[in-house]
Design a protein around this nucleic acid. Sequence first.
RNA 1: GGUGAGUUAUUCAAGUGGUUAAAGAGAUCGGAUUGUAAAUCCGCCGGCUAUGCCUUCGAAGGUUCAAAUCCUUCACUCAUCACCA
Length: 399
Amino acid sequence: MVSKALEEINRGTAEVIDSKRIEKLVSKYYDDGSTYTVKAGFDPTGADLHLGHTVLLQKLRAFQNHGGRVQLLIGDFTATIGDPTGKSETRKVLDRETIMANAKTYQEQVFNILDESKTEVVFNSTWLNELGATGMVALTTTFSVARMLERDDFEKRYKGGESISISEFIYPLLQGYDSVALKSDIEIGGTDQKFNLLMGRHLQRAYNVGKEQAVLMMPILEGLDGVQKMSKSLNNYIGITEVPKDIYAKTLSISDVLMWRYYELLSEKSLEEIAQMKEDVAKGTLHPKKVKENLALELVTRFYNEELATLAKEEFDNVFKSNKLPTDMKEIEVEEGIWICKALVDAGMEPSTSQARRDIKQNAVSIDQHKISDEKLNLTSGEYILQVGKRKFAKVKVK
RNA sequence: GGUGAGUUAUUCAAGUGGUUAAAGAGAUCGGAUUGUAAAUCCGCCGGCUAUGCCUUCGAAGGUUCAAAUCCUUCACUCAUCACCA
């Protein structure tokens, strides 16, 4: 039992520090039912969760299945400071209201995956606000600049002559202090968080918490492009609140290589099953597209249900495989004699009439399934189905 | 506080008075091919009912027939020296 639990917990991990401790905690749970705490931090800077987040959430869920009590930490304090790397203006300092609103949406989405009864949502402003300047200074005395510079990106930037703001030094300290305040047994996070996660161990020792948290790191999930990490700002993500057909379509659009990665990190399928599929594909007995479809179905089912997943698949096959039209599409009404380019803009299918002209020139626009080439066309009254490219459709009623 | 460098379209980045709506690359989008995948090739890539017109090169002024390019002021970014704690 215990070994099975550990297998589930270790699955897909990038690195585990102090795995003995995790073993002990889990087996103690199976001995006498005593639970332990698992901390994971989230920045409430954006409102919607995507699959990248669910990698961590599923891992938390695995812990919950085996005696873990999750401390879902909302970094509301750290968010008010803003992003320290200050790379661009994309991340602004958020006001309290936005943060709380984001935190709320987070919670609603998180319990799609996590067991609410075994989860405690905590905000780090609770104790960080209390810290004050004195506490702050005390915190900074526990660590040295030289050690701080060990952090990879700091070192690189320092050597490269790039600036590092002092607040960036404070960030890891505050995050580590969260572990002191929460007395966490285990903390999980992405591999990019390694330094910060270890800081938790360091500070727990410095503050004599009486234990040092084990650290479990998950790989960073690549986005749809297969290269960069999944993130909203790169627009390469699949959001868990997206409609079924979008989740389905986006999943199918990933590359075959990336598909296995998603299987490993996101699927419920056992590692043996996945290995088997991989082998079958290599042998040619199983078509990779089929495998990908199953993954897409599994994901939609997770966030909705099986019925909607099947529907999404049917819809998708209709539109793309058999070139049929989608069942529901945007409808607009326009005046008689409207210029085709204008109609496309009005329907929200094109950003400008210039773009519409270009697309017509490139043979991308069709009316009722027939490509058009006349960019000066005016629509006479009737009902038409406009299409741009492969996936943009709209029904237009001309009065 | 001193000094120096910089701010160009979605991003990176050329361009230092006139064929510049602005090279090149990436991203996006579209076409071909395919499994709606990847890879590859090609095209487009500010706006406007459009062989023309309008708006853009951090902001505002100015010089000029002509400015992204020259001048002035301002804002911001980065580096560097110094000073204070």
